[in-house]
Computed example of a mutant assay.
Amino acid sequence: MSYSTIRYSLADVAKCNGKNGVRTWIVIHDNIYDVTDYMQQHPGGPELIDEYAGKDATSEFDEFGHSSDATKMLKKYLIGELEDEDKRVNRIKKRAANGIKMKGEDKQKRRPFLRLICGKCTC
């Protein structure tokens, strides 16, 4: 993405949920896509996209195993990216959803294991 990319917050994305004539935006890998004009063409039907309208759909997009063609097609609908703070918040939420804790005591407990793997590092 270039330095001139428009940045939006998760709150901005949430407002674009496709309801009441509003456009439909989704987030995939911290990029924001306006998929309003694509929904009727989606092979799985518009309902699948509608379920994630105004939300981060990264996990679902990846889990389904979309083709490289689908990933390339997304570029056509790219309108911006998440603000840096919301990217950070998203990463924390994804780690928590996957059972990965990264704060305080849990991080300290992990360090001896990492030292075994990487040698003398300051992880």
Rank of each mutant, 00 (worst) to 15 (best):
D37L: 10
Y38M: 04
Y38R: 04
Y38I: 03
M39P: 00
Q40Y: 08
Q41Y: 12
Q41G: 00
Q41K: 13
H42P: 05
H42S: 08
H42A: 09
P43V: 14
P46T: 06
P46Y: 12
L48I: 09
L48Q: 05
I49Y: 13
I49C: 09
I49H: 12
D50M: 11
E51L: 13
E51G: 00
Y52L: 05
Y52C: 01
Y52S: 04
A53L: 08
A53T: 06
G54Y: 13
K55C: 11
K55S: 12
D56Q: 11
D56R: 11
A57P: 02
A57N: 10
S59N: 14
S59C: 05
E60D: 07
E60L: 00
F61R: 04
E63D: 13
E63V: 01
E63P: 00
E63L: 09
F64Y: 15
F64V: 10
H66R: 13
S67K: 11
S67Q: 07
S68I: 08
A70D: 15
A70M: 15
A70W: 13
A70K: 11
T71V: 15
T71P: 00
K72S: 15
L74E: 14
K75C: 01
K76S: 05
Y77I: 02
L78R: 10
I79E: 02
L82Y: 09
L82S: 06
E83L: 08
E83P: 00
D84P: 00
E85N: 06
E85A: 08
D86C: 02
D86K: 03
D86Q: 03
D86R: 03
K87N: 00
R88P: 00
